[in-house]
Simulated assay, not measured.
Amino acid sequence: MPERRPIERIAADLRRVRRTLANFEPGTSAVKKIAARQAYDALLVQACDALEVEHRLHLLPEGMDRSIERLRLEERLRERGLSV
């Protein structure tokens, strides 16, 4: 089994990618936005796995339900002490 990354590193990466998502300039390509969102989701999954939080990100297509699941997971991770 591969060694897990430290949760502190995952949290730092989550915050960095979240800032990137929040600060895209007008005109940023859709490809960059989608890639950043996918990177954020992958980091959320890593954090959930590390803190044993169940998630459904891999089951939901892009859209409102997936956005709601992101918010739910961010809140669950905060409840477990992870600063997102």
Rank of each mutant, 00 (worst) to 15 (best):
E69A: 08
E54S: 12
E75N: 14
A39H: 13
D49C: 08
S83W: 00
L43C: 03
R70W: 12
G81A: 08
D41E: 15
S67V: 15
V45Q: 10
A30F: 15
A22D: 15
G81Y: 09
H58A: 12
I10M: 00
V31H: 03
T28R: 05
A22L: 15
T28I: 05
V45F: 05
K32A: 12
R15H: 05
N23D: 09
R16I: 05
E62G: 00
N23Q: 11
I10V: 11
L57K: 07
K33N: 04
R4I: 10
Q38V: 03
V45G: 00
A39R: 15
E74Y: 02
L14R: 04
E74V: 02
R80T: 11
I34S: 05
L44N: 01
L21Y: 04
A35K: 15
P6V: 13
R70S: 05
E75T: 13
L73Y: 12
L44Y: 05
I68Y: 09
L77K: 02
A42P: 02
I34Y: 03
L43A: 03
P61Q: 09
R66L: 02
P6Y: 01
R70F: 14
I7V: 08
V31T: 14
R18L: 10
I68E: 04
V84G: 05
R19P: 00
G27D: 00
D13G: 07
G81Q: 07
E8N: 08
M1C: 15
E52M: 09
R15W: 01
V53S: 04
G63F: 06
V31L: 10
R4N: 08
A35N: 11
K32M: 09
R78A: 07
N23M: 13
T20H: 11
A12Q: 14
L73D: 05
M64Y: 07
E62K: 14
E3M: 08
S83R: 13
Q46W: 05
D65K: 13
L51V: 10
R78P: 00
V45K: 11
L59M: 06
R9H: 05
S29M: 03
R4T: 11
A30L: 15
L77T: 02
D65T: 07
P2E: 13
V45D: 00
D65E: 14
G81N: 10
E3L: 13
A11G: 04
A12K: 15
R66E: 01
Y40D: 02
T28D: 01
H55K: 10
I34Q: 10
R18M: 01
A42H: 09
P61E: 08
I10A: 03
Q46D: 09
A30D: 15
N23V: 06
S83N: 09
I34F: 03
I7Y: 00
E54C: 01
R37W: 06
R80D: 04
A12F: 14
I68N: 05
I68W: 04
T28V: 05
R4E: 12
R4W: 10
A39T: 12
P61A: 13
A12M: 07
A11V: 11
S67M: 12
R66C: 02
L73N: 10
R80F: 06
R70I: 03
N23W: 06
E25A: 13
R66F: 04
A30Y: 15
R16P: 01
V31E: 15
A47P: 03
